[in-house]
């Protein structure tokens, strides 16, 4: 046995010395404080600057209420659609070999690389007054541009990489072994998906959904182009916040902003609760194998 003093000097090759550890931790903390915590607290501080009554009044405003409803509606439509699309795309890419696979992966990344404003403009060109589709749809009474369908389309476009991007590497690592085992045991495709594939990817899927949801509620650029900003009708929360801010209505703007930030925090808390609740299972299923 080496003496305890000698033991103390021995440390794992990958661990840094104390001062280095402190410096690294310190940099991270300062960075997070300046970039994340400070702005976030400012939002809430501004919202409550004239007291909680003003805050509640701002939220109770008819247009603000409409904006909240619209934002939740858009997220409620676009997130499930992107879950379906993301799982399909990840499945196809991870489990099959086909021509144009690399191209498909690049396409899925497109919304990340294209500016959201351009994404919005694409829909204006597709469904606008001078386009082929717009007037034809209008003749059937369907308004896309400056209405909810356009906002939903633009949101889906901007958010569709999140779920697929999260799942593709996960499913590629997992391969097709478990699925083959399931079908060899007599399970049909549907049973295999629900009982084997989905449980294997559920944590990745959840994370993708949370990111997708956060972006769907917060999207500004693409939505601003297609919405037409009709107050109380086609303004989502981010748009409404900008309108209020431009009208020098700071308290109302920050109140709504606080609400939006709160929605994002709620999803984060939900994720933490799920991770805590299923922590044992997570540890049991992620390690080894």
């Amino acid at each position: 046995m080496p003496s305890s003093a000698a033991q103390r000097r021995v440390r794992a090759a990958t661990s840094e010395s104390r001062p280095v550890q402190w410096v690294l931790i310190g940099i991270s903390l300062v960075f997070i404080a300046v970039i994340l915590v400070l702005p976030l607290t400012t939002v809430f501080a501004e919202a409550f600057r004239r007291g909680p009554d003003e805050f509640l009044k701002a939220l109770a405003d008819k247009d603000a209420q409409a904006a909240i409803r619209l934002t939740l509606l858009v997220a409620a439509i676009s997130v499930p659609l992107n879950i379906v699309f993301g799982v399909c795309a990840a499945w196809a890419i991870a489990k099959y070999e086909f021509k144009g696979k690399a191209f498909l992966i690049t396409l899925i990344d497109l919304p990340f690389s294209v500016s959201p404003v351009i994404s919005g403009l694409v829909y204006v060109l597709l469904f606008g007054a001078g386009s082929m589709l717009g007037p034809w749809l209008r003749s059937y009474g369907i308004e896309v541009l400056f209405a909810v369908p356009g906002i939903v389309l633009a949101t889906i476009f901007v958010t569709f990489p999140f779920v697929a991007r999260e799942l593709i590497p996960l499913m590629q690592v997992q391969g097709t072994g478990d699925e083959e085992a399931a079908i060899s045991l007599g399970a049909n495709g549907w049973q295999t998906f629900w009982r084997v594939t989905l449980p294997n990817i559920k944590w990745g899927l959840l994370y993708g959904v949370l990111l997708c949801n956060a972006r769907a509620m917060g999207e500004f650029g693409a939505v601003t182009v297609v919405s037409g900003r009709i107050r109380g009708q086609t303004t989502t929360m981010p748009l409404q916040i900008e309108i209020l801010y431009n009208e020098y209505n700071a308290v109302a703007a920050f109140s709504l902003a606080a609400m939006l930030a709160l929605l994002a925090l709620v999803t984060l808390v939900l994720k933490s609760i799920l991770e805590w609740r299923f922590g044992d299972e997570l540890a049991a299923t992620n390690g080894g194998h």
Binding site: G177, D178, A181, G186, P199, N200, E281, T285
Partner: peptide, 14 residues
Amino acid sequence: NVGFVFQHYALFRH
């Protein structure tokens, strides 16, 4: 209706 045993077990980890 065959029983198949895989090299890397392919047990359902969850």
